[in-house]
Design a protein around this nucleic acid. Structure first.
Lengths: 348, 348
DNA sequence: TTGACATGGTAAATCGTGTTAGTAAACCGT
DNA sequence: ACGGTTTACTAACACGATTTACCATGTCAA
């Protein structure tokens, strides 16, 4: 097991200088090297099993070609994040395509030590994507002010930090309008989480907008608040099902919460969509495989990842960004739980 | 926006040498620095907002304090990997605890270019965890032979590469024995995938072992092969339900596949567990939230991550490893789909 | 007095590359 | 024959730390 080969070794064996080795192996444009020398260097490099040292290269070039992907979630939230694989997959696909690596770092929301900003400060990465930014994150504002490349997934009002987000309001409107279009008038809402989360609030707003546009009064007694979990959905749904008269449809602003709600319905021996129609939100991978398959609003999770990487790499490259705030559209995916397929409609 | 502070700047402002700065800031043991000097250095570093450059540090120390987490899956597989968040969460938790960062890199199984081995060769990372190793991966064998720290998640027979795996045989036996214990004799099996995958094969073996131990003949006509997806499970289940007499129970060696099978049952207006009992495998996060909640075999996904990191970091530290092959036990999680809760038993 | 040892540091080598500025030789047109 | 250009390459510095080896001074026991 001899020592690793360095560019110096290659240079010596090929009878050229290190500079030439670097030029050849990096294919530096605008530099003339004879085909003869070029081949010799390449051949020697192969023979010596030469691979340039990443750390040295980073130091010399000043670029790490790495981005940090920070997830502001507790371990429990990470474990139950059904769109994480898509999102992360999108991120690494896009990053790889641009020659970047991805450093993955979850960090609990309570952790205000700003540990993750060290990734930037110590130059582990060229920039970071932060999913689930917090209002009280002073360290984040600081590094952004210092000029560090940062892209948020999710919004942070009051700042000009570039972000990628989903059109939650539009998506919720889509879902609600669909139910209205099927003839429903008594439509309940179960939120995905507390309205302290902007995504939750936006989905509620979209729900309300759709009602108002159709002239249906917004009835607060038909609104319940989920907490990310199926359990919270089940509890909320039980309350709604006990109402007299019952709502004829419900928009659950999260598929995971909707599964709990679905269970509540099944336990009462009621049927979806016949007794109550469902529309969810997120289009998690299993939404189409539960019974009944869930009509839901698709979030382009992988697309969020791509877009975030795309934006971030442009910022890193110091490009002039025309629009640093990107909102991706959602899409209604109609399956069985809303009753549309069955031609079910409700009288006004 | 002035230049970044370097250790030289700190040294000058504090009136000491760079060596001393390094000693103080790294708390190098066995080195004496007066408390006075120490405080001065720390204070100056704070004032100058000094953060050591990761690349320079890597180069000088020869350690990257980073591990690569490689996922040998297609993008589609990644998107539908319901245990990925747990596993990845486990990996980064453990890594963080040991002062390591995690580089995440999915790579399609078809890609035999060995792109990921560059992570090792170019010293981006100190070692790698490879999930889903392939038999035909020559590059993998090569870097292992070269002494690179590698830990597999999943086994590769014929090699002595350290690995972490789940006791698939034992888990399948657990599931099957549970059904047998409930009185079932006509028990079907739907595999999670082709038996070309060792995990699939092992689960089939465990199923068979349980039958044989109880003196129940292994009936090939009761075996169907899933392909990761709910669709494959639905198709398989339809075949099984058409049999006369029907099996009274089925062990589906994957929760995701089981969901499709469940749908098939629902479509035929049959009931679980009354008409047919179910036991799944994996304990994906939604297993407890579907209807009926799925009895299943829990894989300690986060534990796989921890264990892999633990093993890898020991190898990196050149510790003597007593047991480089770790098999984690599974756990049967009894819910409603098997009928145990309802006290349902089947006559022999 | 002297040798040993502890104290509190520092100088200098090293890590392995990228990159700018420069140069020797060959070529070329007149 | 000669100035100018192209070709093909190299010397040397920069990047920012870690780490080994060494040194000056003071103290203390023999």
């Amino acid at each position: 097991m001899s020592k690793r080969a360095t560019s110096r070794d290659v240079a010596e064996h090929a009878g050229v200088s290190r500079t030439t080795v670097s030029f050849v192996l990096n294919n530096v444009p605008g530099i003339r090297i004879s085909e003869d020398t070029r081949q010799r260097v390449i051949e020697v490099a192969r023979q010596l099993n030469y691979h340039p040292d990443a750390s040295a290269r980073r130091m010399a070039s000043g670029k790490t070609k790495t981005i940090g992907f920070i997830l502001r979630q507790t371990p429990d939230q990470v474990f139950a994040d059904h769109l994480l694989p898509q999102m992360l997959g999108g991120v690494s696909q896009a990053a790889t395509a641009q020659g970047f690596h991805v450093l993955f770092e979850p960090i609990t929301p309570e952790d205000n030590s700003g540990a993750y900003v060290r990734l930037i400060r110590e130059r582990h990465v060229d920039g970071i994507i932060l999913s689930g930014p917090r209002f009280d994150d002073r360290e984040l504002l600081k590094i952004h002010a210092e000029g560090a490349p940062v892209v948020l997934v999710g919004q942070l009002s009051q700042t000009d930090i570039p972000f990628i987000d989903v059109d939650n309001i539009g998506g919720a409107r889509l879902a609600t309008e669909h139910l209205i279009g099927l003839g429903h008038r008594r439509i309940a809402l179960i939120t995905n989480a507390s309205t302290a989360y902007s995504a939750s609030l936006d989905r509620l707003i979209g729900f309300r907008q759709a009602l108002e546009t159709s002239g249906i009064p917004y009835d607060l007694s038909l609104v319940r608040y989920g907490q990310f979990t199926p359990q919270s959905g089940e509890a909320a749904m039980n309350e709604l099902l006990d109402m007299i008269p019952r709502p004829t449809a419900v928009f659950v602003a999260s598929d995971v919460v909707a599964l709990g709600a679905l269970r509540a319905v099944h336990k009462k021996k009621l049927s979806v969509p016949h007794d109550i129609a469902f529309v969810g939100f997120d289009d998690i991978p299993l939404a189409e495989s539960v019974s009944p398959p869930l009509t839901t609003v698709r979030i382009p999770a992988a697309g969020l990842g791509w877009a975030a990487v795309d934006l971030l790499t442009r910022i890193i490259a110091q490009e002039e960004i025309r629009n640093p705030k990107v909102v991706l559209e959602t899409e209604l995916v109609v399956r069985a739980s809303c009753g549309a397929a069955a031609g079910l409609t409700h009288p006004a």
